[in-house]
Amino acid sequence: MRFFSRTLDKLKGALRKTAQVLNTDVRTLFVPGRRIDEAFLNELEEKFLLADMGVGNVTAIVDAIRERWRLGKIRNASEAQSVVREQLLSGWTDQDRELRFAATGPTVLLVAGINGAGKTTSIAKLAWLLKNQMNKKVMLCASDTFRAAAVDQLTIWAGRLGVEIIKHQMGSDPAAVAYDACEAAKSRGMDVLIVDTAGRLHTQEHLMRELTKIRDVVAKRIDGAPHEVLLVLDATTGQNAIVQAKMFSRSIGITGLVLAKLDGTAKGGVVLSIRDQLSIPVKFIGLGETPQDIETFDPTRFVAALFGDTEGEPQAQTADSSR
């Protein structure tokens, strides 16, 4: 399911702006031929810490580089870069990023996350992607019956995108909405049902139980559902994201992340820790407010962005030509 996006320009633009905001030339770190020394290692550490990769993770990476350098295995910056890159990229497989579809009947995507992570917008993007790029019949399920006007917000998106929506009154039981949506999706021959849920902090136990209930209801109505359980993560989130992923996983078994708001200056490096510790891959990234601003996650480019360079540009041509 590889598709090319017109959003690459946006990503590049964002990176350029990042450079402006940080007011540094991001390429100074890996000037060709630069020798490794303590100053270089410190800079590397700083860069990674600023990308929210977490102090434990970063220390391990930098120590590994330092060790290799001491042993004389690597000497200059570009060698260091490739070692790090290799290390960060190992374990990411293509299958990781693909959506799992049901063999027959509707595929159910359950979408959850904390308040303000970007769930509803991400759902609009997924719906656009599935409908317009993959020719699927998409239905939305408005199971966020808690936040004021959440149903309205999703309804507006459904109208704009031309997909169906199942909704109840505000304040009604979200699991009941999911129940109805499952029945409707089956009877109307939908390919995909995307279930929106209310934002909740992972520390709110009763709300996490409510989420489990929604999942259970969906699982009972449709065979093998939910086929994907996506956690939407705000790219600006710090180390707390790990706990979020852990707790949501415990309640509903997360199968993948949607990393939203990556068009800002935040790097979202915390997803590397989530991948390492919980084996939850990133499936999609969000790069703006319109439905088209979604991309499948590309680890190579993501890691390049962590270094603060815009490498991965070779893909730009492919993207341009495919437009």
């Binding site: 905001v21 990308a51 929210d52 600006t236 989130t237 707390n240 994201a241 800002g264 200056t265």
Partner: peptide, 15 residues
């Protein structure tokens, strides 16, 4: 500002 913000909080706050 979101209390869970990471390193980027300074960039947005500053801007």
């Amino acid at each position: 500002l979101d209390a869970m913000s990471g390193q980027d909080a300074v960039n947005s706050a500053k801007a």
